[in-house]
Amino acid sequence: MHVLFKPGFFSNVPVRHALVLGAIVALVSGVVGVMTVVRSQSFAGHALTDVATTGGAGAAYVGVSPLAGFLGGAVAGAGAMEFIGVQRARQRDIATGIVLGAATGLSALFLYLNATSSATTGVTQQVLFGSIFTVDSSTITVTALTGVIVLLVLAVVWRPLLLASLSAEMAAALGTRVRLVGAAFIVSMAVAVGLSSIAVGSILSTALLIGPAATALRLTRSLRAAIVTSCALGVVATWAGILCAYDSYDWDPSSHGLPVSSFIVGIVVLLYGISGLPGLRRRAHARNRDVLRTHDAHHAMPGSA
């Protein structure tokens, strides 16, 4: 037991907070991520972390709460993307790019102003890489509450949004306002992403949004299963990463450990790589459940006999 879990792992308050916060972010990202990948909006999902960061840097300069800055930045960015928004997927990425470019410019300004005006040292690093180990319990409460709101909004628009993502024409024929549900989604995504980038940093925000969802979509046979798998993979990767990071302080006494985000990203990408193995994919792509059952039954026979 002590080989895997170093002494103090469970009694350490920052670690406990990190485990809880990581799980909340992984759960919300797991659900939002499935729809993000289905709609091919990974770029927007990632860009919004940077736009949120701009909001955070701006908040630091103006002197309002960073949380308001991150959320405000992300939602404003999503609004701008939707406003420029062009229907074709290729053009949609350009809209995202324009917003990201402008936000980046503002980021440069805020970081410069912060560096020159006040003693907010480490703001660049904090903003870019965040740290799951430095959060307090109030952040956890806010993250959990906002996460629940995001999930509720998604549940309300889920079915019209899903059909609109698969075929905008068929959704419109059923009377769905395709543009409206799309906007509802990107704003929900912005809130989720803004929250996760302040809680766990922008690298992890993107990794947890895209990685587990893309992995789950490859492995499962229905969206419901994909969402459950995506959440589970996200939580497992986050917890395992936190454990590794905690243990890494002991690996080499001279070093000061490795960042938790590096471990989690490594695990997320590894899981995605494993999901590409042909054996796993064959199961998910079998044409008929009955065929699959008879196949399994056939293999089970010798053992049971």
């Binding site: 549940a155 309300v156 628009v157 079915r159 019209p160 899903l162 059909l163 698969l166 959704a171 059923l174 009377g175 769905t176």
Partner: peptide, 9 residues
Amino acid sequence: LGLDAHRFG
């Protein structure tokens, strides 16, 4: 989805 994709919730 043909049954309920026009409905919220």
